[in-house]
Design a protein around this nucleic acid. Structure first.
Lengths: 219, 219
DNA sequence: GACGGCAGTCAACACCATGTCGAGAGGAAT
DNA sequence: ATTCCTCTCGACATGGTGTTGACTGCCGTC
């Protein structure tokens, strides 16, 4: 289906068939409309007609640019995950500097990125249940982060900073999963949630105790 | 809207207007059909017509028993959460016996309950994005569990078994959130997931380190 | 400078799921 | 027998999605 999908590589081309032209700004207009409407109401309450009219085109014309409503969201999600990847950067390779500070940096940067696009993130969480493509993309992104954390944990164990324990991969999955769900609750604001101001420190604390058995890991 | 909703109290009456009668088994037939179909395909791919035909009635008649497709799922969810509450029982009040064993028991019982109804649980997770009522009910149930865990953590701190640290409520939220998301991944099988065989021990390990800073809490 | 082709556009249509309305059938109580 | 209530469904209204086919204008090219 979709070609290659390298993380930062060429545009994933979820939108129009390809080729540059005047219709380029229409595509952007659809994306912008989606983000704007998402700020006001849930994804499910936005129809293709809303998106089309918001971009100044008719509904059939929408299909010239995107194959479905979900594809628009997928494009938006692509942007966010790329931004998150960029924000995370190489923090984890510099762990030995100051583990606590580095882990905190990692969590704080993800928090900032997701918080800055909470409407998109929330909408994705909402359709993940119904849309296999969103599910697939999210799984892929998560796998990447899990692997990075897994490697970092193993690195810390190898240098004697962290004790042995659970398989690093399982631990990485559990911690990443926790973050995802906790952020979701915090941003969505329904159900028991950690206050936005505290959430980074709460998550950090659980990460550190799970990895090091202490909140003050040794240098 | 819905009356009272005490946890274990009288039936929440999500179904027919009320009153006993012959149509009682029809209501059960709809529920049974829903569970059966959920085993085969996602909730979104099941139409009201499927439910009605499966129960041997016509689509309009379905509306005599339930106001919507979601209401059927809600009824199913009610059952599961009640079973989970019953399974959890009073495990947490006997923590001082053997903390590790008690926490493990708690997690294992939830795991068994959810695993035994994974189709319903997965369907609810799927619909939570679009259905406010499911969201509300789930939030309510979660709040109950969070409070129980919060109290247990405070108890462990008071008796000197667990060190001070994060606000107990924040910690309880984070841990419960982790469980929810990890189970979801394990049962759904998409994306990075912990093997079903290991999941209880993985979760337990993170709980213990987060609460006690060790995997072998003192008696 | 006409001509073929392609990006872009949309009215009209086919389809499908949801939810509603109103007319009934059958049994039980009065 | 009549009235009431539970239970039933055919037929309809609505609203969203995705498709078709015809049309416009522009750009290159021969």
């Amino acid at each position: 289906m979709s070609p290659a999908r390298t993380s930062t590589g060429a545009a994933p081309t979820r939108g129009r068939r390809s080729g540059r032209s005047t219709g380029d700004d229409r595509e952007l207009a659809i994306l912008a409309t989606a983000e704007r409407l998402l700020r006001k109401r849930p994804f499910g309450d936005i129809s293709i007609d809303d998106l089309a009219r918001g971009a100044g085109i008719s509904r059939p014309t929408f299909y010239f640019y995107f194959p479905s409503k979900d594809a628009v969201l997928l494009t938006l999600l692509d942007r966010v995950t790329e931004e998150a990847n960029a924000a995370a950067g190489d923090v984890l390779v510099r762990l030995a500097d100051d583990p606590r500070a580095r882990w905190r940096e990692l969590i704080a940067r993800f928090h900032a990125t997701f918080g800055g696009h909470r409407d998109v993130v929330l909408a994705c969480a909402q359709v993940r249940g119904t849309n296999a493509e969103v599910r697939r993309l999210w799984a892929e992104v998560l796998e990447r982060w899990v692997r990075a954390v897994e490697a970092a944990i193993e690195g810390e164990r190898a240098r004697g900073a962290a004790p042995d324990g659970l398989p690093a991969r399982d631990l990485a999955i559990a911690l990443n999963s926790m973050n995802e769900r906790v952020w979701y609750a915090t941003f969505a604001g329904d159900g028991p949630a950690v206050a936005e101001r505290d959430v980074v420190d709460v998550l950090l604390d659980v990460w550190l105790t799970a990895i090091y058995r202490t909140t003050t890991p040794p240098l």
